[in-house]
Amino acid sequence: MLDDFLVRAVLAAVGAALAAAPLGVFVVWRRMAYFGDATSHAAILGVALALALSVPVFAGTLVVALLVAFGVARLTGRGYAADMVLGVAAHAALATGLVASSLLSGPRLNLEAYLFGDILAVSKMDLAVIWGGGAAVAALIGWRWQALLLSTLSPDLAAASGVKPERERVTLMLALALVVAVALKVVGALLIAALLIIPAAAARPLSRTPEGMLAGAASVGVIAALGGLWAAWSFDTPAGPSIVCVAAVTFGISALGGHLVGGRNG
């Protein structure tokens, strides 16, 4: 069954969507959208470095994403405006990655595949990375779930309850780097942040609890993965962007529905 490239593509897309959901809700709650962008753009640099050093691409992206995440967190912790640091990091990481990949000799790096994803070329090894990484993200966030929620609502309340907000922030950065490495093959560096944010945003108007929103985000993610692949197959469109488009449509419907029902965001 896994020998069929389409089956592998479906499994990869669903796996990436499920891995993104538990982190995506926190990206929305903590307003980390731009942070996700900066970290995922750094993946291109990770790919270039991995190929230059002949180490697995997964390891390269994971390490570089981690470095960028912690670097940005450190700078903002020192009083630099977060918006500015992220603006610098997101674009610098992308540009550096593009330059580094152009310096690689030979035709080894298909840049487009890493910028926009290359889901139809997913190997069994990639599948193992996606589901293994996804399981690690779910385990990590599931383990810290309660403490993460409280630190997100109020770091001071967390501290008063014996939770260390800085440690929970590290948890999220680890998870983010994992998701970037996992989702790179599926939607590409430019659209990873979309896979994080849009399903969670679509789930918001329909949920009453954090757990409800997580379940909603996972469901929307899976719907987007399947619908996007179907669209890509039917209309011969690129798979990664198609997945994000379906997610965006779901968001539109949900926002409209939430508004009609009574708009909890008002």
Binding site: V25, V28, W29, R31, Q146, A147, L149, L150, T152, L153, S154, D156, L157, A158, A160, S161, G162, V163, R204, S207, R208, T209, P210, G212, M213, R264, N265
Partner: peptide, 22 residues
Amino acid sequence: PQGLRLDGSMPMTVARFLNLPK
């Protein structure tokens, strides 16, 4: 705490809030 406000990006009922972190 002083002046804590929740912006509504996280759905959270009062009962659920009381269950954090234990």
